[in-house]
Design a protein around this nucleic acid. Structure first.
Length: 106
DNA sequence: CTCTTGACGCACA
DNA sequence: GTGTGCGCCAAGA
């Protein structure tokens, strides 16, 4: 089905397992547009606020800019998911090698 | 219908 | 290794 990119993104994010994370680029690619990583971000802010966006991270493994609550909120949320994070001074980065969920769209 | 923005990604300086 | 800019596609106003 060719649902709107937004709906696809929301569906993917909603299906991210607890203890797992995905990158904007990854999600965008799964939705069919690897270059639409920024779209995913836009949807994150404009789309369904009930989705686990805290499991959505950028290429760096860190949360996107402007997350409600800041890094601390992010850190605690991910921590509640049993997700390991490495502390880089001011930023907390998710261990993509351990929690990067790959949705096999093929 | 048209323009601007966007919670990113990658390339180049 | 770090900093800045441009590019991508889609959705909001």
């Amino acid at each position: 089905m060719e649902a709107s990119f937004k709906k696809l993104v929301e569906a993917v994010v909603a299906e991210i397992a607890i203890g797992k994370v995905m990158t904007y680029g990854q999600i965008a690619a799964i939705c069919g547009n690897a270059k639409a990583a920024r779209i995913v971000g836009g949807i994150a802010h404009y789309g369904n606020p009930s989705l686990p966006w805290h499991r959505v991270v950028n290429k760096s493994g860190g949360l996107a800019s402007g997350f409600p609550g800041g890094r601390k909120a992010h850190f605690m949320l991910l921590k509640e998911e049993s997700i390991s994070m490495k502390v880089l001074g001011d930023s907390h980065l998710v261990d993509l090698d351990k929690h990067l969920l790959r949705a096999d769209s093929e």
